[in-house]
Nucleic acid binder design. Structure first.
Lengths: 225, 225
DNA sequence: GCGAGGTTAACTGTTGACAATCAGCAGTGT
DNA sequence: ACACTGCTGATTGTCAACAGTTAACCTCGC
């Protein structure tokens, strides 16, 4: 059982803020004033500063020295940057997974896969994306590389932020749920096929990127409303 | 011309500490006490905490909550983790470089390459590694992906730390300077050969990893002195 | 002599106050 | 009317002090 460890104040504050940002309650571009937050959460400015620093580290906020910190407003260009890196490290992750993960660990991956398929069958996109992320997180976990996992989490949080905001701006993106691409990844890993797995990851990102580019393109010529 | 911007105190402190850590003046495992550092640098504990937080972010120190922060003592296993990620993102970097970098930018890469070759011809390994890093930094810069560059810098600092400490423990690693592997990378990019460049990067990391594994193996059976 | 429990010193987490800086606005001159 | 200068309120960067926790030491009982 996990040793109960005192959460530091800034962690609680960071958790709260992260949730509000990803929920969309704190819109992109919103200025986060330290004294306000301190008052709201009933702590002093110190822990708030630490929390904001953490959020900036993972890319959910940006910190302009002596001017304040603001909720990140990520663009299509940012998404492109994130996806290039995610693809690179996830290909590396599946390579490692195949050579070192046990069958039991791979079983966990399939559990995550089923959750994804179930979630996309439902109608709550936010939930589906959460499951989607969890699948990829499981992939990176199979690598056994802690730095890789932490890096993926960092990039994942930015991805989620961008998804949520794009969900808000143009409410429905017409698409076929990306379940097939995920299944291909899991099965290639289970089959211990390095080539197949790397290609499957590539296909996944190609698919996702194309899809997002299409929705962006469909939305951006008509930015009104 | 660059707008002159006030460096914050914690940046100065972080710079100083980073230098001392990489110089080896602060050995791995050393405890960094906030009050001591505050007194030494003539600032309060606030900026010192921020500086330590930054160093932990890039992996030069580790932060144990309520116990203090210590200079990282990186192991062979850490190196393995770092190199897996570096290889993955550097392969992605050269792919991007080939498709978007102009000939002038690639010229800068060759300038860095010449610096590497000159440095390895000299006898100061620390200087040579610095040039080596700068070459890879130039590579990542060619990608035009800011996140990728920052990520590389983060991993680079850990690499340098490990190199320096390994230099201290077993003073000389017998090797042939890795100039050829770097040249292959630069030339493949200049020739706009994606396949060649990716393979060259792979060869570089294979070479470096083998070399380090060999020196570690040679040192670890006889850990005394 | 050796281990368990209590005690103390040192250090980190947190707080509230002070000083420096920035963005916006009014006022002035052209 | 417009641009520029000097204020003003708000906000961040920094500081010094308090409180809680950790780790080491020291004593006591076996």
């Amino acid at each position: 059982m996990a040793v109960l460890e005192h959460k530091q104040l800034w962690e609680t504050v960071a958790d709260q803020l992260r949730e509000e940002i990803l929920d969309g309650r704190l819109a992109a571009g919103t200025r986060l004033v330290e004294t306000e937050l301190a008052a709201r959460y009933g702590v002093s400015r110190g822990p708030v500063r630490d929390a904001l620093s953490e959020l900036s580290r993972v890319g959910l906020t940006v910190d302009l020295p002596r001017r304040g910190t603001f909720v990140s407003s990520l663009t299509e260009h940012d998404l492109e940057e994130v996806y290039v890196i995610r693809r690179a490290i996830e290909e590396a992750a599946v390579r490692l997974a195949i050579e070192r993960a046990g069958d039991d660990e791979i079983g966990a991956l399939f559990a995550a896969l089923q959750a994804v398929e179930a979630a996309y069958a439902g109608d709550d996109l936010a939930v589906a994306w959460e499951a989607d992320m969890e699948f990829h997180r499981a992939c990176s976990r199979l690598s056994g590389n802690r730095r890789l996992m932490e890096l993926f989490d960092l990039l994942a949080s930015q991805t989620v932020l961008l998804m949520r905001t794009s969900l808000q701006s143009h409410a429905s993106l017409a698409w076929t749920p990306p379940v097939e691409v995920h299944r291909r990844i899991a099965e290639a890993i289970a089959a211990r096929s390095v080539e197949g797995a790397v290609e499957a990851v590539g296909a996944h990102y190609q698919y996702t990127q194309d899809r997002l580019a299409a929705t962006e393109a469909a939305a951006s010529p008509a930015p009104g409303d």
